[in-house]
Nucleic acid binder design. Structure first.
Lengths: 240, 240
DNA sequence: CGCCGTGTTGACCAGTTTCAAGATTGGTGG
DNA sequence: CCACCAATCTTGAAACTGGTCAACACGGCG
């Protein structure tokens, strides 16, 4: 809510929420980033390249992170290679906070990435001292939970067309780009497919369908223009 | 972890975890239920009948609950009637805790149910005083998050056979019934379908398939006997 | 210029859903 | 106690969505 809602689309009237992408850290409380000042002094800046692993599921969670630039994917792998991306992270997002017992997900860099790592023990200590910081973390977890619920609905009950439309809209809401502006799509088609529970081919096909119906334009692989937001919202809600 | 793991199956060697059903409240810390003694005095006992709504998504969350007997489903509804069940709750489970801004899900009674409700404001107050209670809530939320991740993988990347097998196994792990014992299935086929992102017919067909392959027995609609746990585990992991 | 990774498109296939017909089960009233 | 009805479950056949396989296009990059 808050920023994401405020900075939403330029066009038309109010719309049902299509929040399923992250948007945790920055902007959760519009001006309340002071909450995190406490963390400012204990962080270490790190860099990861395209597709590099930041940590693996099961690793001891010695650090929590804040993403400064680039995008990160959090995912789960099955023994046979099947993959489900649970969440994409964008600049400002916090992740792996409150991971008492080991990382529950693998984190990989979608593109080149800069982030800050904080020792978990320090975070715990700070949390013990600072009630507002604790509050902040609880809010963060609640929001994650809500997004998970939406994602469950998407994976369990929505069609390919609805999934892709929702995804594009949530990307847009997250970035706050206006109708007509180019929207950056940092992740590969495979990433999108693994996030939406589809195959890469289906994602492609739906994208071309959307392009042919003039709802979107695709100047290049990592950019996209949403030309008809309302059409997309309709499709995302099942107005097939 | 803890109880769920300990009390797991009677049969054979260690197995990969198939935890996706709840198991939150009771037993999260084997003997540490004393944490909740603080709540004991402020609760009100409530009763709901089969299929009755306990609260709706969007309702102000004035209370949190602890399930005493029966089963509850937490779900999301789409405008056109599609439904996704996010979680089943069983005796001992806590729910709707830490729901600052309204209920994010609808809660309905799967069968006749008894539960205790606690005023949210009291919980907040108690949490502010008691660090160990806070800790407890955070652990609860983390576990929920983990289960959501597993559920995402299930919905996004697993086949009908894998989903149903996982479901049965998690039910079994949750209830701690042994191989050969009858397992209660309180929810309807439709509930199972909506939990697994399938249709009722597909659930039926998979169940008969499992029955015909002698992995399970179905004495009646609300009971089931897992005759070959290992076969089920293999199927759940994709050993189709 | 040609190669390699990624994306796109088409033809075909399979798993799941849809639609429809019975079979069970449970509850109600005679 | 049994007959009947409604609700739920089961099963089959046909339809469809999305997946698989395979060819081709595109875009860096050596």
């Amino acid at each position: 809510m808050s920023i994401a809602e405020t900075a939403q689309s330029t066009g038309s009237r109010t719309r049902p929420p299509v929040r399923s992408l992250s948007s945790d850290g920055q902007g959760v409380f519009p001006g309340a980033d002071g909450n995190l000042i406490a963390l400012r002094n204990i962080g270490t800046r790190l860099r990861f390249n395209h597709n590099q692993t930041i940590f693996n599921e099961g690793d001891p969670a010695e650090h929590a992170y804040r993403l400064l630039s680039g995008a990160v994917r959090l995912c789960k792998h099955l023994a046979d290679g099947r993959r489900q991306i649970v969440q994409f992270l964008f600049p400002g997002d916090l992740f792996s906070f409150m991971e008492l017992a080991g990382h529950s997900l693998t984190a990989e860099a979608v593109n080149d990435v800069v982030l800050i790592s904080y020792p978990q023990r320090q975070i715990v200590r700070l949390g013990a001292q600072d009630p507002s910081l604790r509050e902040r973390f609880v809010v963060l977890m609640s929001q994650r939970l809500h997004r998970m619920h939406d994602h469950l609905m998407l994976l369990g009950r929505q069609t390919a067309l609805e999934r892709v439309s929702s995804f594009l809209l949530s990307l847009k809401e997250r970035k706050g780009t206006g109708e007509g502006d180019a929207l950056d799509i940092p992740m590969s088609r495979q990433d999108i497919a693994d996030y939406l529970g589809l195959t890469i081919e289906t994602v492609c096909r739906v994208l071309t369908k959307l392009r042919r119906s003039r709802a979107i334009g695709i100047p290049n692989i990592h950019q996209l223009i949403i030309s008809d937001v309302d059409a997309l919202y309709a499709l995302a809600e099942g107005g097939a």
